[in-house]
Design a binder for these strands. Structure first.
Length: 524
DNA sequence: TCCGGAATTT
DNA sequence: AAATTCCGGA
C-alpha cells in the first residue's frame, strides 16, 4: 500500500492523497495514472503534482461530481456548478486548506494563455477546454507515416500556434468517433463519405498547453517507456472497490479509461479493434468477480458505432486469441480470466480507480474555425509503434477526496464556511498532515462533520449510496446536461500482447483504410 | 463575477 | 512550471 502524500508537499501526508497521488514513479502506474509528462519532471520542484486541468477533467469525468462540475453546453465546455466545492476538492487534493474559488479561478485563468482553457463569456463559472486538437494516446501506433489520414502537418511546432482557441467541433469528434452522439448533427466522418475527415487534425505530437514541438525520444509517449502494469496491491484490503449501480458514464475521450490495463494496450476508448466484441452491439463486457467495474459500467456507444461499421477488425484477431476476445466479453478484462493473473489495480492516482489511463485525449488548442476542413493530422509518431501516451488518468477522485458530493445548494445554504477556514476541508485521515495542515485543526473536525453528515464517500463503493444519499438531488442540480458526445466511451480489454503494435486502434480510423491496416497486420 | 499583475510558494 | 496568495480594477 502506498502511503502517499499530498501531491504538493512532502510534509503533507493527508490521507486524502492516499491513492490520489501516483507513487513514484508517477507514470504508467498500473493502469491509470497520468503519464509522466502530465506531471512535472522529476527534476522539477513540483514534480508530479497533478495539474489543475487534470483535476478538472477528473471531476468532470466522475458522475458523482455532476452536481459540482459538469460538462454542459458546447464540446469541452463545462460549468462549475459549485465553485466552492470544486475549490474545496482542489484544496484537498493539493493540501491547500485555504483554497477557494477565487484562487482556483486564478489558476484557471492562467490556462487562458496556455490555451488549455478559455472562459465562456457570459456564462457564470463556465469554461471550456480547448479540445481543438485530438490527441491519440497510448495507442500502439499504427504506421502513421503510411496512413493517408495521417498527413503530416506540424501545426504547432515552431510555436506559432494560432491564437484561435476555438474548441473542437462536433464534426471533429465525429471524425474520430463516427456515429457518436453529437447533439444531433449526425454527420460523421463516414457520413461525409469522404473517408478522410476534412475537419480537424489529429495530432499526436503536440500538446499546446504542454509546450509544442515534436515528441522527444524520451517521451513517455513511447511505448517502450510504458511499463507493463504489474499486479498492484489493493490499498483497501477488505474494502470493495466497486461502483455498483454506477451508470455507464464517461466523458470526453481524453479522460477516460476505466480500469487497469496494460499500458501498452490501453483501449480506454472502449474501442479495441482486436476484439470482435468491440464491434458488437450490446457488447458490454462483463467483469469477473472482484472486478473493479461492473459490467454495466461499460456500455460503449463507440462500440455500437463501430459495430455499425463494416469494420473487419475482428478478423484481425490473431488466431488463438479468441480467448482474449472472449475474455473481453466475459469479464476477463482485468486479467482475472483467461490465464492472466488477476489484477486489482487500484489507481495510484485518483482517477485510476475507476478510470484507466486514457489512450486518447482530445486536447490541444489553437485550431481555429478556419482550420476545420483540414485533414486529420497525426504527426510525430513515426518510429514504429509509438504509444502516444497522453494518458489522462482521470478518475476516482472520490476515493480520496471524498467521493460524494454535497449538493451545491446545501453548501450554499449555510454549510459553507468561512473561506479562510479550512474546516470545510475534509480529509479522511489528517493525522499526517503537516506543513500547512498543521495549522489546520479543523481538518479532523471537518472530516468528522462530513462523516456525520453522511459525508462524501471516500471510495467508489460509497457512490452507490451516494446516488440516493449524498449526491446532490437532481432537483438541486442545474438543468439537465446534455450528454456529452463522448460519454460512455470506455475502455475495453487490452489486446493480447502478441498483437502487433503496428495496427493500432488508432484507428478510429478510417474505415476507408481498414484494408490497408489489415494488410499490415497480415504482414506483420 | 471575472480579470490579470505581482509576489511568493512548492 | 504551476500554482498560490493577494489584490485592485472592470
Amino acid at each position: 500500500m502506498h502511503l502517499l502524500r499530498c501531491s504538493g508537499s512532502m510534509d503533507c501526508n493527508c490521507v486524502s492523497d492516499l491513492l490520489l497521488t501516483p507513487p513514484v514513479p508517477a507514470l504508467w502506474t498500473p493502469g491509470f495514472a497520468f503519464p509522466d509528462w502530465a506531471y512535472k519532471p522529476e527534476s522539477s520542484p513540483g514534480s508530479r503534482q497533478i495539474q489543475l486541468w487534470h483535476f478538472i477533467l477528473e471531476l468532470l469525468q466522475k458522475e458523482e461530481y455532476q452536481g459540482v462540475i459538469a460538462w454542459q453546453g458546447d464540446y469541452g465546455e463545462f460549468v462549475i456548478k459549485d465553485p466552492d466545492e470544486v475549490a474545496r476538492l482542489w484544496g484537498i487534493r493539493k493540501c491547500k486548506p485555504h483554497m477557494n474559488y477565487d484562487k482556483l479561478s486564478r489558476a484557471l485563468r492562467y490556462y487562458y494563455n496556455k490555451r488549455i482553457l478559455h472562459k465562456t463569456k457570459g456564462k457564470r463559472f463556465t469554461y471550456k477546454f480547448n479540445f481543438s486538437k485530438v490527441v491519440l494516446v497510448n495507442y500502439p501506433l499504427l504506421d502513421m507515416a503510411s496512413s493517408p489520414f495521417l498527413l503530416a502537418q506540424n501545426h504547432f511546432n515552431g510555436g506559432a500556434a494560432t491564437t484561435d482557441c476555438s474548441p473542437v467541433t462536433p464534426e471533429a469528434l465525429q471524425s474520430l468517433f463516427p456515429r457518436l452522439p453529437d447533439s444531433g448533427r449526425g454527420t460523421t466522418l463516414f457520413d461525409r463519405g469522404t473517408g478522410a475527415p476534412e475537419g480537424d487534425k489529429l495530432r499526436l505530437d503536440t500538446f499546446p498547453f504542454l509546450g509544442s514541438g515534436p515528441i522527444p525520444s524520451s517521451s513517455p509517449f513511447y511505448p517502450d517507456l510504458a511499463p507493463m502494469c504489474p499486479p498492484c496491491p489493493n490499498p483497501f484490503p477488505g474494502r470493495k472497490v466497486l461502483i455498483e449501480g454506477a451508470p455507464c458514464y464517461s466523458k470526453p475521450p481524453s479522460m477516460l479509461g476505466p480500469y487497469p490495463r496494460n499500458p501498452a494496450f490501453d483501449y480506454s476508448w472502449g474501442f479495441n479493434p482486436y476484439l470482435p466484441g468491440a464491434l458488437s452491439l450490446n457488447n458490454c463486457p462483463k467483469l469477473p468477480p472482484g472486478s473493479l467495474y461492473p459490467s454495466h459500467f461499460y456500455p460503449n456507444p463507440l462500440q455500437s458505432s463501430l459495430a455499425q461499421l463494416p469494420h473487419p477488425f475482428s478478423s484481425l484477431l490473431p488466431p488463438g486469441d479468441t480467448a482474449g476476445a472472449e475474455r473481453a466479453q466475459t469479464g476477463g478484462a482485468n486479467g482475472s480470466v483467461g490465464g492472466q493473473a488477476p489484477r486489482l489495480c487500484i489507481p495510484s492516482y485518483p482517477g485510476s480507480l475507476l478510470q484507466g489511463r486514457t489512450e486518447m485525449g482530445i486536447l490541444g488548442s489553437g485550431m481555429g474555425e478556419r482550420e476545420r476542413g483540414e485533414n486529420i493530422n497525426i504527426t510525430g509518431v513515426a518510429g514504429g509503434g509509438i504509444g502516444v501516451g497522453l494518458g489522462l488518468g482521470l478518475g476516482s477522485l472520490g476515493l480520496a477526496s471524498g467521493g460524494g458530493v454535497q449538493s451545491p445548494s446545501d453548501r450554499r445554504a449555510g454549510m459553507k464556511q468561512d473561506p479562510g477556514s479550512d474546516s470545510e476541508l475534509e480529509i479522511t485521515d489528517l493525522s499526517d498532515c503537516s506543513s500547512e495542515n498543521e495549522n489546520e485543526p479543523d481538518f479532523h473536525a471537518s472530516q468528522e462533520k462530513e462523516n456525520r453528515m453522511g459525508g462524501r464517500p471516500h471510495i467508489p463503493e460509497a457512490k452507490t449510496a451516494g446516488l440516493g444519499g449524498t449526491l446532490p438531488q437532481l432537483s438541486s442540480l442545474p438543468p439537465s446536461i446534455s450528454p456529452h458526445p463522448l460519454k460512455s466511451l470506455v475502455p475495453l480489454t487490452p489486446p493480447p500482447p502478441s498483437l502487433p503494435t503496428s495496427l493500432s486502434p488508432s484507428l478510429i480510423l478510417v474505415e476507408r483504410h481498414r484494408e490497408t491496416e489489415t494488410l499490415k497486420l497480415t504482414h506483420s
